[in-house]
């Protein structure tokens, strides 16, 4: 028997009794970052595959969604900072060993690329917006240039968007102090999940039947890959060291068992794949419900991962100190 008890006060906010430094803001950022990467990839894929007719939405209108989605994610990331005035400090140094520093600098490359990718689709996808850009001096020339270089832009988008999608997972997996996160599978898992949540957007946005069909099949394949990656992720924990097995226990009998399986895997992956199959067989309503569930599942994956990772730890103190008792004494 080993019992370790704190005999002096330690109740640092967000650290004790268990880590709670990151909540919905980070989960939302990881979710939207992955979705933005997926949007960029599908928009680039439609261009490189010359699918302007078959994938008209992805080819002409999808690219604009990426900067909107990512900016929303960056907003929630900003909300998470404890010392918001110092946000500029991300750009006063580059720390090669810090994934977060890499992420901050990758965004400097991603945003301009997103912008030119969007500009290259504006005249065909959003003529009104294109008209506004053309009113700016040089706007028409820039639009023409982006359209002319559309394939080059799409080629550049592929590696950077894959990097962005993987980064959202690496951000967590780089923390060896949190056994639940410390797996190289998180990067590919978050990329595939991000692509899956992006794939359902054209379905929900009312793309034409041929394009819907493409994205339903694509999304089913992505969900299948996601299920395999989740299985590998859990096997990795099960075959790891004691800390990894303890982390796995959180979702196999521990406090996160019901949330992980009943709130995420079942409604976020298994039900959508069945409903998408039904959607392909003509039940369009079920296809739309599947789309909503996939988006929900994408967010739940990040939300639970962020939460469970913080619950998995190397330290295991029993807190004797109860701050509520201290507050009662002070009243």
């Amino acid at each position: 028997m080993i019992e370790e008890v704190l005999v002096t006060a330690r109740y640092n906010p967000k650290v004790d009794p268990s880590l709670g430094i990151w909540t919905w803001e980070i989960a939302f950022y990881l979710f939207l970052g992955g979705m933005a990467a997926g949007i960029m990839l599908f928009a680039a894929w439609a261009v490189l595959g010359r699918r302007e007719n078959a994938l008209a939405f992805a080819h002409n209108r999808f690219a604009l969604w990426a900067p909107v989605v990512l900016s929303l994610g960056m907003t929630t990331l900003f909300l998470d900072l404890e010392y918001k005035l110092h946000v500029f400090r991300f750009y006063t140094s580059f720390e090669p060993s810090s994934p977060m520093s890499w992420g901050a600098w990758v965004l400097v490359l991603i945003y301009p690329l997103m912008l030119v990718q969007t500009l290259s689709t504006l005249r065909t996808g959003y003529p009104t917006l294109a008209g506004l850009v053309e009113r700016i001096p040089g706007g028409a020339v820039i639009l023409s240039l982006c359209e002319h270089r559309r394939r080059l832009i799409a080629w550049l988008v592929i590696p950077l968007a894959v990097g962005l999608g993987i980064y959202t997972g690496v951000l967590l997996s780089a923390f060896s102090a949190r056994p639940f996160w410390n797996s190289g599978i998180l990067g590919p898992l978050f990329l595939v999940s991000g692509m899956s949540t992006a794939a359902v957007l054209p379905i929900l946005a009312g793309a034409h039947p041929q394009e819907r069909h493409f994205f339903e099949i694509t999304d089913m394949a992505l969900i299948a890959v996601e299920l395999v990656l989740i299985a590998l992720f859990l096997i990795n924990l099960a075959t790891g060291a004691a800390q990894h097995m303890d982390a796995l226990a959180l979702v196999t009998g521990g406090p996160y068992t019901a949330p992980f399986w009943l709130w995420f895997v079942l409604p976020g992956l298994l039900v959508p794949i069945v409903f998408e199959l039904a959607g392909l067989r003509g039940y369009r309503g079920l296809g739309l419900v599947a789309g909503v569930l996939v988006v929900y599942g994408g967010f739940m994956l990040r939300y639970l991962m962020v939460d469970i990772g913080q619950a998995s730890t190397w330290t295991d103190y029993a807190l004797q100190f109860d701050p509520q008792l201290l507050q009662r004494l002070m009243q």
């Binding site: 967000k14 404890e82 810090s98 977060m100 913080q310």
Partner: peptide
Amino acid sequence: CTGCKACIA
């Protein structure tokens, strides 16, 4: 410090 809390994690 930006208070990103990466060091705490």
